[in-house]
Simulated assay, not measured.
Amino acid sequence: MASWLDEPLATIALCWRVERCDGVAIGLTAHDLDLVVDGFIYRAAPGMTPSAIQRGASFDAESMDVTGALSGAAISEADLLAGRWDGARVALLAVDWTDPANRQSLGEGTIGAVELKRGVLTAELRGLAAALEAPVVELTSPECRAELGDRRCRVAMAGRRRFARVIAADGAALTLDADEPLPGGWAGGRLRWISGANSGLEDAIGASSGAVVTLRRAPRFDAMGALVEVSEGCDKSIATCAARFGNAANFRGEPYLPGIDLLTRYPGA
């Protein structure tokens, strides 16, 4: 343990480094003044307080909560609700505020559940051991469990993405200045916002028809005039995988495995 932690007069300040999935990183400290640690500025946020921190050598999933008032310049309520901070990496460290070169790492993890009550933010930080809670074996399913274009699907996506601009918006329905490559070709795909207030966010496409795409949820912010990247989708059926993509060999499902619906069938059905 660092010797500066044993001094009679404690000069300890807690610091958080938060890195979003899009590369944006901010630093916050419970100290009443800004601190610079390894060239990175940690802005003063005295209201930020963590729950009890426990460290051990077991494989139990570690988690803790951080509570504090929202800061519009750092983490805004709008960005939290929009999902910009989902899955962000968080590193917690203790620093000697008289000499920030003295520091002690307390742990790291990712942002899990987030709650907002009367302007007060409570974020759950899930440690690395939380990954051990994931299922080891996948459940069977008649539909493909891979995502179009990922390492298990292996469909090349280079020619299946295109840029377009939003020329009209009506709730979750967006009209683009480009048509889909084939009827329903964008359904089940992804729409990534390149410019505008939604920049950096992604949305799932529920349906498409011509130049109109219907998202599974309405855009968080104003969408008019924004540049977007639209990717083709897949309905995850073996028929589409074989006929449209010629990729049945990589189909990650069991379309011919009898399920519980076998009990509801009757002769001649």
Rank of each mutant, 00 (worst) to 15 (best):
A2F: 04
S3I: 15
W4V: 08
P8W: 08
L9V: 13
A13S: 09
C15T: 05
R17T: 11
C21M: 15
D22W: 02
A25H: 06
L28V: 11
T29S: 12
L35T: 08
V36I: 15
D38A: 10
F40W: 02
Y42V: 04
A44G: 07
P46E: 09
G47I: 07
M48L: 14
T49V: 14
A52G: 09
A52I: 13
Q54K: 14
G56C: 10
G56W: 04
A57F: 14
F59C: 12
E62N: 09
M64H: 04
D65I: 08
V66A: 06
A69H: 08
A69D: 12
A69V: 13
A69L: 12
L70M: 13
A73M: 11
A73K: 09
A78H: 08
D79T: 13
L81Q: 10
G83A: 09
R84E: 08
G87T: 03
A88T: 07
R89G: 04
R89S: 08
L92M: 12
L92D: 01
A94M: 05
A94I: 05
A94E: 07
V95E: 01
D99W: 03
Q104I: 08
L106K: 02
L106F: 03
G107P: 03
E108T: 05
V114N: 01
E115G: 09
T122S: 09
E124P: 00
L125P: 00
L128W: 12
L132G: 10
A134E: 15
V136S: 10
V137P: 01
S141C: 13
R145K: 13
R145T: 15
G149E: 00
R151G: 10
R154A: 12
V155T: 10
A158W: 07
A158Y: 07
A158H: 07
R162N: 07
R162C: 06
A164G: 04
A164P: 00
D170E: 14
L176Q: 01
L176C: 04
E180A: 05
L182E: 14
G184Q: 05
G185P: 01
W186C: 04
A187F: 05
A187V: 06
A187Y: 03
W193H: 03
A197T: 03
E202A: 15
G206H: 04
G210N: 05
A211P: 00
V212Y: 11
L215S: 05
R216F: 13
A223I: 06
A223M: 05
L227N: 05
L227D: 08
V228K: 00
E229M: 15
V230D: 00
V230G: 00
E232T: 07
C234L: 11
C234F: 13
C234Q: 04
T240H: 06
A243K: 14
F245K: 03
G246N: 08
A249V: 14
A249L: 14
F251M: 09
R252V: 13
P258M: 10
L263V: 13
Y266P: 02
G268P: 00
A269I: 13
